[in-house]
């Protein structure tokens, strides 16, 4: 399965790619929302992992955009923010999963579809 990772932190992004590849996925990484939007859009069978805190266009905006696509990909939010901050930003949005940092491979695997 193809997994898109939108994460600005280089360390998190790199380690996430490694573990996802390890789990058998094809990984495409983006340092921000803008570069995701410039690339070919994900399709309905893809998963997009979005960090809430992004430079420029915020993560919640990316989630909103993805959930409005004709073929909605699986959207998984990752974040280190407090629950109230998460709730505030995701008002009215229902991503498939929210995984809080620090991430573990188990929590990630649960949020991804069984492959």
């Amino acid at each position: 399965m193809r997994v898109h990772v939108v994460e600005d932190d280089a360390g998190v992004s790199d380690s996430l790619s490694l573990i996802l590849a390890n789990l058998g996925h094809d990984v495409i990484s983006y340092p921000d929302a803008e570069s995701l939007f410039r690339s070919p859009p994900p399709d309905g069978s893809d998963t997009v992992i979005v960090d809430l805190t992004l430079p420029g266009i915020p993560g919640a905006q990316v989630v909103r955009w993805l959930l409005k696509m004709a073929a909605v990909p699986r959207v998984v939010v990752i974040t280190g923010q407090s629950q109230s901050a998460i709730d505030h930003q995701l008002r009215g949005l229902a991503p498939a999963g929210v995984v809080r940092k620090p991430l573990t491979v188990e929590a990630l695997a649960r949020a991804l579809p069984a492959s």
Partner: peptide
């Protein structure tokens, strides 16, 4: 700060788990 610490901890955890 908790948020800031989460980044390296996440990366660290994932590298080791890999």
């Amino acid at each position: 700060i908790a948020h800031e610490l989460n980044q390296p901890l996440t990366a660290l955890m994932l590298y080791l788990q890999a």
